[in-house]
């Protein structure tokens, strides 16, 4: 579904991603792991059009989308949730969802979308009129995800959804993402630091080191082979 071909990008003059190629197939969860500064988040930002791509290409369903803006990605059914479960702290939960759904074509779709995500995340239902700053960490994570899911995306790009969550909530959050993918056929590309947990939900895994892919394979292999783990993690 998503294909990244020898992508090179960075911040300012500093090159961070040095020619990464990877593929995400329909319906699968692919985990992107690696050390701090390996270029995982940078790669995701470049793919979503938040950073200029220096060279290389990005394809969605074999269609070139290298220069697509975030708005174009959203319209094509691809949502991105940035690091840290960011939500609009000053806005209420309802207003957050309204902004999350602004690329929807009409109000009816917005209402349907809101109903759907509230069914997925029932705790948010009672807090629609509360400012998002008053939510707990777990609830903020739900809201961040709900903001992306309100558009019924086919592909989700997630940047460390577990960041800042307490350990039991990490498992819960990742489990929720797995369930979502299974139930609705959403394809997921997920960047994670919590390697052990993400390997349980991902089908394939891609390890980045110094801005390049150092291992690519089935998540289960990496999970069970201690030698591989030593070499690549």
């Amino acid at each position: 579904m998503l294909r990244v071909d020898s992508l090179v990008t960075g911040y300012g003059k500093k090159q961070v991603v040095n020619g990464v190629s990877l593929e995400v197939g329909r319906g699968e969860i692919v985990a992107l792991i690696g050390h701090n500064g390996a270029g995982k988040s940078t790669l995701l930002k470049a793919v979503f059009g938040l950073l200029p791509i220096w060279s290389g290409q990005v394809f969605l369903d074999s269609e070139a989308r290298t220069t697509a803006t975030p708005r174009a990605w959203l319209r094509a059914g691809v949502s991105y949730v940035p690091q840290g479960n960011r939500v609009f702290a000053d806005l209420t939960v309802r207003e957050n969802l309204e902004v999350g759904g602004i690329t929807l074509p009409d109000k009816q779709r917005l209402r349907d979308g809101m109903e759907r995500v509230l069914a997925l995340f029932p705790p948010l239902k009672d807090k629609l009129k509360q400012q998002a700053r008053t939510l707990s960490g777990g609830e903020k994570q739900m809201l961040a995800l709900a903001n992306a899911l309100i558009l019924s995306p086919r592909l989700l790009l997630l940047d460390e959804p577990s960041l800042g969550l307490a350990p039991p909530l990490v498992t819960e959050a990742l489990g929720r993402i797995q369930q979502l993918s299974r139930d609705n056929g959403v394809t997921v590309l997920i960047v994670e630091q919590k390697v052990r947990e993400v390997l349980k939900v991902a089908r394939r895994v891609c390890v980045l080191r110094n801005g390049a892919v150092s291992f690519e394979g089935i998540a289960e292999e990496l999970r069970n082979d201690t030698k591989l783990r030593e070499v690549y993690l």
Binding site: F48, R86, F88, L91, E98, I102
Partner: peptide, 23 residues
């Protein structure tokens, strides 16, 4: 108004607003 909600969203976190498709 929806305009006001979006304006407050941009004021709150312009990067996040862009990510969600606000121009």
């Amino acid at each position: 108004s929806p305009f006001g909600t979006r304006l407050r969203a941009v004021a709150d976190d312009p990067d996040l607003a862009a990510i969600q498709g606000v121009q």
